[in-house]
Amino acid sequence: MGFKLLSKLLVYLTASIMAIASPLAFSVDSSGEYPTVSEIPVGEVRLYQIADGVWSHIATQSFDGAVYPSNGLIVRDGDELLLIDTAWGAKNTAALLAEIEKQIGLPVTRAVSTHFHDDRVGGVDVLRAAGVATYASPSTRRLAEVEGNEIPTHSLEGLSSSGDAVRFGPVELFYPGAAHSTDNLIVYVPSASVLYGGCAIYELSRTSAGNVADADLAEWPTSIERIQQHYPEAQFVIPGHGLPGGLDLLKHTTNVVKAHTNRSVVE
C-alpha cells in the first residue's frame, strides 16, 4: 500500500471513529477524501466538511520552486461564519470567499490569524475590503508590521502568557507558548472536538522541520505538551499544512522538532 493511500485511509478511519463516538456532533463529509496538494491548482481553494458547521479550507501556493498546501478553518456561528487564517495570499483568499459563498452561503463576518507569517495573514486586506472584521493577538499584529505583512485590524486580548485561553464565538483560542513562531495560536472547536494546530503542528508525513527561522526550538516541545494537557479530548487535529489526523500529530511534531534540534547540535 502506497504512503499517500495509507495517509488518506488514516484520515478516513479517524473521521469514521469520530462519527461513531459522537453521532450528534459529527456529520463528516462523505463526498470524498481530504484534498491534497496535487489536486488543488494554485489560485483555487477546496472546502472539506469535518463536522456539522465545521470545515477546513485548503489552498496551495508556490514557494521556492515548489507547491505547498495550506489549511485553515471555518466555523459556523449562528447565521454567520468565523474564518481562521487566510488562504495564503490575496488571490487565494478572494477564491476562498467565493467558494464559501458557493458552498455554504453564509457571510464571513470575523477572521482570526493564528500567527504573523504570510500563509496566515496574506489576504487580510481582501477580507477587510469584503467587510470582514480581522483579528490577531497584539504580538501577531506587531510582528506582521515588522515583517511588512498585512496586519489584522483588531487585537485579541488575554493571550499574552503561555497557557492563556479565551473564548471567541464558537471557538476557544489558546496560546501554548512559542513553537513554530513566538505568537502562534491554537484554535479548538469544543462542539466538535476539532483542534486546529496551525503551523505549530505537523502532518504525519512530514519528517523535516522546514521553516524554523522564527521558531523557538527549545520551547516548542513544552508548548505541545500544554496543548495535549489542555485538549486531551480532541479527536480531529488539523495541521497548518497537509493531512489531518488525531492527537498523534502532536507527538510526531515533537519528535521531528527534537530530531532537528539534535542534528543542529551535532553539526
Rank of each mutant, 00 (worst) to 15 (best):
Leu47Tyr: 00
Val256Trp: 03
Asp52Pro: 07
Ile40Arg: 10
Ile238Thr: 03
Thr36Cys: 06
Leu24Thr: 12
Arg226Asp: 04
Ser191Ala: 07
Ser7Ile: 10
Ser162Asn: 08
Ile238Gly: 01
Leu82Asp: 03
Asn255His: 05
Glu267Lys: 15
Thr207Lys: 08
Val54Asn: 01
Ser22Asn: 07
Asp164Ile: 11
Asn184Leu: 01
Ala51Tyr: 15
Asn255Glu: 05
Ser16Val: 07
Leu73Phe: 03
Leu10Trp: 12
Leu243Trp: 07
Gly43Leu: 04
Ala213Asp: 13
Gln103Ala: 07
Ser193Lys: 14
Val257Pro: 01
Leu24Pro: 12
Leu106Gln: 07
Tyr68Ala: 12
Tyr48Ser: 10
Tyr202Asp: 04
Ala19Lys: 08
Leu247Val: 10
Thr134Lys: 01
Val75Leu: 12
Gly72Cys: 01
Thr86Asn: 02
Phe174Gly: 01
Ala21Gly: 09
Asp119Lys: 00
Leu106Pro: 04
Pro190Gly: 06
His230Val: 13
Gly122Thr: 14
Ala234Ile: 09
Leu13His: 10
Phe63Arg: 10
Ala144Glu: 03
Asn262Glu: 06
Ser113Asn: 15
Ile186Tyr: 02
Tyr202Leu: 15
Ser7Asn: 07
Arg141His: 05
Ser205Gly: 12
Thr254Trp: 07
Pro152Glu: 02
Asp79Trp: 15
Ala129Tyr: 15
Asp214Ala: 09
Gly210Asp: 12
Leu47Trp: 02
Val171Asp: 02
Ala95Thr: 09
Gly65Ala: 10
Gly65Lys: 12
Phe116Ser: 14
Ala25Pro: 07
Thr254Phe: 07
Pro138Leu: 12
Ala129Gly: 13
Pro221Trp: 10
Ala200Lys: 02
Leu5Val: 07
Glu101Asn: 07
Asn262Ala: 08
Pro41Ala: 10
His117Cys: 00
Ala66Asn: 11
Trp88Phe: 15
Thr14His: 06
Glu267His: 15
Tyr175Phe: 07
Asn149His: 06
Leu127Gly: 01
Ser181His: 00
Gly43Val: 04
Asn71Asp: 03
Glu219Thr: 11
Leu173Gln: 01
Ser205Arg: 12
Val121Thr: 06
Asn262Tyr: 06
Ile151Cys: 08
Gln235Ile: 04
Tyr34Gln: 06
Arg120Met: 03
Gly163Pro: 04
Asp29Asn: 07
Pro152Trp: 02
Asp77Phe: 10
Gly2Arg: 06
Asn262Ile: 06
His230Trp: 14
Thr207Phe: 13
Gly163Ala: 08
Arg226His: 07
Ala66Arg: 12
Ile238Cys: 02
Glu225Ser: 08
Pro152Asn: 02
His57Gln: 11
His57Arg: 02
Ala94Trp: 13
Ile227Lys: 03
His230Arg: 11
Ser30Lys: 14
Pro239Met: 00
His154Glu: 10
Pro170Thr: 09
Arg263Ser: 09
Glu39Asn: 06
Val121Lys: 00
Leu143Ile: 11
Leu73Arg: 01
Thr182Ser: 08
Val266Trp: 09
Val194Ser: 02
Ala218Thr: 13
Ile186Val: 08
Lys251Gln: 15
Ala66Leu: 11
Gly163Ile: 06
Ser31Pro: 11
Phe168Trp: 08
Glu150Lys: 07
Ser162Phe: 15
Gly158Gln: 14
Thr207Gln: 09
Phe63Pro: 07
Pro170Asn: 15
Glu225Ala: 14
Ala144Tyr: 04
